[in-house]
Nucleic acid binder design. Sequence first.
DNA 1: GATGAATGAGACTTCATTCAT
DNA 2: GATGAATGAAGTCTCATTCAT
Lengths: 220, 220, 220, 220
Amino acid sequence: MTEYEAFKELLELDDQEQLTPKQRQIVQAAIEIFSEKGYASTSTSEIAKRAGVAEGTIFRHYKTKKELLMAIVSPVITKLAVPFIAQSFVKQVFRDGEHKDFEELLRAMIVNRFEFAKKNVPLLKIVLQEVAFHPELQDRYKHIFREEVLPHFERFVSHYKEQGLIKDYPSETVLRLVITTVIGFLVTRFIVMPDADWDDEAEIDRTIDYILNGLQTVQD
Amino acid sequence: MTEYEAFKELLELDDQEQLTPKQRQIVQAAIEIFSEKGYASTSTSEIAKRAGVAEGTIFRHYKTKKELLMAIVSPVITKLAVPFIAQSFVKQVFRDGEHKDFEELLRAMIVNRFEFAKKNVPLLKIVLQEVAFHPELQDRYKHIFREEVLPHFERFVSHYKEQGLIKDYPSETVLRLVITTVIGFLVTRFIVMPDADWDDEAEIDRTIDYILNGLQTVQD
Amino acid sequence: MTEYEAFKELLELDDQEQLTPKQRQIVQAAIEIFSEKGYASTSTSEIAKRAGVAEGTIFRHYKTKKELLMAIVSPVITKLAVPFIAQSFVKQVFRDGEHKDFEELLRAMIVNRFEFAKKNVPLLKIVLQEVAFHPELQDRYKHIFREEVLPHFERFVSHYKEQGLIKDYPSETVLRLVITTVIGFLVTRFIVMPDADWDDEAEIDRTIDYILNGLQTVQD
Amino acid sequence: MTEYEAFKELLELDDQEQLTPKQRQIVQAAIEIFSEKGYASTSTSEIAKRAGVAEGTIFRHYKTKKELLMAIVSPVITKLAVPFIAQSFVKQVFRDGEHKDFEELLRAMIVNRFEFAKKNVPLLKIVLQEVAFHPELQDRYKHIFREEVLPHFERFVSHYKEQGLIKDYPSETVLRLVITTVIGFLVTRFIVMPDADWDDEAEIDRTIDYILNGLQTVQD
DNA sequence: GATGAATGAGACTTCATTCAT
DNA sequence: GATGAATGAAGTCTCATTCAT
């Protein structure tokens, strides 16, 4: 379980650690307002006001408004992919080949993403919104996805497929179904209906169950 | 199957039917640019240019830029909910209570939404983006969802749960899992990776399978 | 007294008599809105709406918005000067040279202007406002004043001055004081405080008294 | 007489003292153009041009064009009422009860207003024009008038009425006649015919005389 | 004559960015 | 580094006027 704590550290690593106080205020304010009204509808003057700094100060730290957005959004993209890239993940999966493993892997992933989402709702809102309009972001995502996530995932899936634990779908399809279900859960939980009365543990369990059943070879 | 064609007609009905030519051009151009760059980043002058009309003409038909957005987005909200509200749906489900039925229901829903999405990618992009920033839209969605979709769905689910065909999850959870999977599919197919090499029929089949398996009571 | 009725007729003469119904509606609406919000702040579309005609119809009858203003304002300027120009006035004054006469002249003038103002508050508001910004109007006023009003008045004043009934002030000063007092009364009565509880007869009497006393040679 | 000089200081006091240079240029330009063409017909771009600043600079100092108008007009309203409110006025009047006193009071008021008008023709033009179209301004005027000016004046008038120095008219009527005559003089002098050949001292004397005679009890 | 959709110039205003202090 | 006044390009919207119907 300590390996997941390592993730967390990794996540917090390249963060707002070496930011000056003013910078921290600016980034904090920008995250809040960007996530409330969207990047395009947010004015730098409003950011400055909420951050309690002069408007000029923003541009001392970030050449342009867009650079500020990227400074906020970029680390999140990395963080989002990290769990898949991390070696520990791979190791764990191949330690043995039982079904239990797949469930544990899923649970680890979901719980980890859940905790991350919980702590970063505004950040995730921003990413979700802005990815659509900034090709650079899309490119970075696609690159990471194709080069890092997909290959790793491919290995898991073929491993489990060989063992007859999951259906013989194309890996892309499996990946799509899993990711879609997980993201769908998190988005519903934290963005669409954050104020509903959630029994998080139960919902996580049910979501895992749903994925496992959904993917398993039909037993008849 | 002709009942779904009826839906389509319904969908196209109250639409851009009584628009003047200029208005049609404006709406068309606005849909395109809104979906490309987002509402906030789109200027009315750009819309006018692409529509081939004077900028003032936009404001003769829509008092504000926002009213133009709403004129575009509002009917889509209605359309999206229509299939759930339509009586034919309900009838079909209760014709008999076999498992086949559930699959057919699911397939009908997915195919129907698939066709709709296919023809309305830009519109869906706009809705997906802008719902986040316009509380009026959220309210309308929530209202339709709570008053129309949820009650209908509730009946289906309890029907199938009684027959032991799907797990004994809360209806909200079942709804979430199904909708999430369907939307996830459509978003991946048409928005995230529209240019990938898709075998639509197969993917639809697999998605239906995934949902059915995912929800069914474990048979062991 | 019939001579004053002649004035009235004159006043109503070149009026909105030969206007088409639509034109009448337009002029009526324009007068209302111009006097409420001022010429510059009134849009032709608002006039059209209140008049119940199409915007284009306005421009069928008046080449420009300004022409509409002038069509409204011009007759008023004439009307305002008419009593001074009219021959009957002169005649009356010189019928005899008694003090009573001057008072009657004054009273006639004030009552006449009072009735005119009463019926034309919106028109007078417009004139008062717009004269300031349209040199053509100023020129017309000055012309009428210098060519028509002043010469006539001059005769009255010198007549009364010779008789020792009024002070030996320059005629311009006498004219200024009288006009100023009358206009001041009318503006207060109908524009500044139209809703106060006025005893019109008494106020007219007092105003006449004030002027007479103010101008008369000091009796000591 | 030094007390009137005190007024002047008061008038200039809370003024454009703490304005930045740019702001001063903007206000100066705005006063000029507003008084030439009226508020509604003046564009902010023209103000900016005449002020020699960027158009945006106007809106850095005044959120809206109307706020700029109010910043210009508001202090004038106060200034106009100040002489009536000031204590020195009251003191002077009640020093003794002779007729001489009333004349002096009148003269003081007229001379003071005359000097003020002389230096503030454009400002007065603006106020005169815009009061008609901005209910807020009317309200402020009416408030000041009812709460400050009228009560003070009432005391003077009843004082003089008791002494038989002025007619037994309602105070409102006396006030109306006096103010009307004074304003009529100033408007004629500075706005209607500023370019005529005026003998200011003589005209002031005559105006005072006219008022005194006009109001005094008839001596026969 | 009457209409009202269409126009485009120009209005007010916002905003990211610069720069002297 | 920090400030915030200043900028001017660009945005949304208004409006007098035209013109095809």
